[in-house]
């Protein structure tokens, strides 16, 4: 029989590194909350418990439509890294650790480098952008994002003339994301924009929702939002942004090239092979409403696609 001398310190008394890091995160978040409490008012309708992002600029690009509630926006999500059910992300996303977080910006640019999330939060004045979001499945919401134009980040790294596309890679963490253990899509989730699309003022990197830091299930800590495109174009929990010459082979286009295109502009005239895209159900409404070309952002973005056959480049 093996007799061991008891150690002076019980294993349970040693704090694992992850735990003390969590404590720091907690303290930082608590500090944020205190600061938030000092501010006069949270965004109307907000019920979240995330740290407040402080004073936000209003944007003329916001819609005047009534936003969906915080509960709707955070309980009905497509985020396959946490499962294919709409309620899976709300249930499973607590596993994701969105701090500390870094985003590598690489590829065809003069000054490639890595940005910490705290730096990204200060990169440009944070704006509230209330956007329509149309899912390729035929439902839609109005969401008050907080973010900054992607262009602000790209300007920092100075894209080279040879760069024509921007690829956005999402986190692929089997230990924190149960969904990536299944071969539903080719992980990591990859989305992309043409460089001129990425530089469009409507295209943002969102870091918040309803004035607070982004909840995990919505793509914390930083995600892509391009409101004239179907929702799946908005890569979540981004860890790398790469400037490239050729059109990226994005996740959904790869999964089913006949049904999901690279451009994925909202287009009521181009049906999904298995369902119509002419109408959508706004979450919270009973009657379907007609889907608008470019999700209603045609005045701002239609010129990007002049001369292109949108049935070919769907």
């Amino acid at each position: 029989m093996l007799i061991r001398k008891p150690s002076d310190i019980l294993p349970s008394e040693i704090t694992p590194e992850a735990t003390y890091r969590d404590r720091r995160t907690f303290l930082a978040a608590a500090g944020g909350l205190l600061a938030a409490a000092a501010l006069p008012l949270k965004a109307k309708g907000a019920q979240g418990s995330g740290a407040n992002l402080g004073p936000l600029q209003k944007s003329p690009l916001s819609t005047s439509e009534t936003p969906n509630t915080y509960a709707q926006v955070t309980q009905y999500n497509n985020f396959y890294e946490f499962g294919t059910g709409k309620d899976d992300p709300a249930r499973e996303a607590w596993r994701l650790k969105p701090r500390p977080w870094e985003v590598k910006v690489t590829g065809l640019c003069a000054k490639p480098r890595t940005f910490g999330i705290e730096e990204l939060l200060k990169l440009a004045p944070l704006e509230e952008r209330i956007y329509r979001m149309r899912c390729v499945e035929g439902w839609s919401m109005v969401i008050p994002w907080v973010g900054f134009p992607i262009k602000a980040l790209l300007d920092k790294v100075q894209p080279l003339g040879s760069a024509r596309f921007v690829a956005f890679f999402s986190a692929d963490r089997p230990d924190q994301m149960p969904g990536v253990r299944l071969p539903v899509l080719d992980w990591p989730y990859l989305e992309g924009l043409r460089l001129d699309e990425a530089n469009h003022p409507l295209a943002i990197l969102a870091v918040g929702l309803y004035g607070q830091i982004l909840p995990n299930q919505n793509g914390a800590p930083i995600r892509l939002v391009a409101p004239w495109k179907y929702g799946f174009k908005g890569g979540k929990s981004i860890v790398e942004i790469r400037l490239v010459k050729d059109q990226p082979w994005t996740s959904w286009a790869k999964a089913n090239p006949n049904e999901y295109g690279f451009y994925a502009n909202v287009n009521p005239n181009h049906d999904h092979p298995r369902w119509s895209q002419k109408t959508e159900r706004r979450i919270g409404e009973l009657l379907r409403r007609p889907t608008q070309m470019f999700n209603g952002y045609g005045d701002q973005v239609a010129h990007l696609y002049r001369g292109m056959d949108l049935d070919t480049y769907f």
């Binding site: 049906d271 298995r274 369902w275 119509s276 002419k278 109408t279 159900r281 009973l286 009657l287 379907r288 409403r289």
Partner: peptide, 20 residues
Amino acid sequence: LLDQAGAWGQIPRDLVKRPF
């Protein structure tokens, strides 16, 4: 009655066009 509410006109077309 509910899913297609407000878009009833598209049902016949859907029935013909959508194999599923």
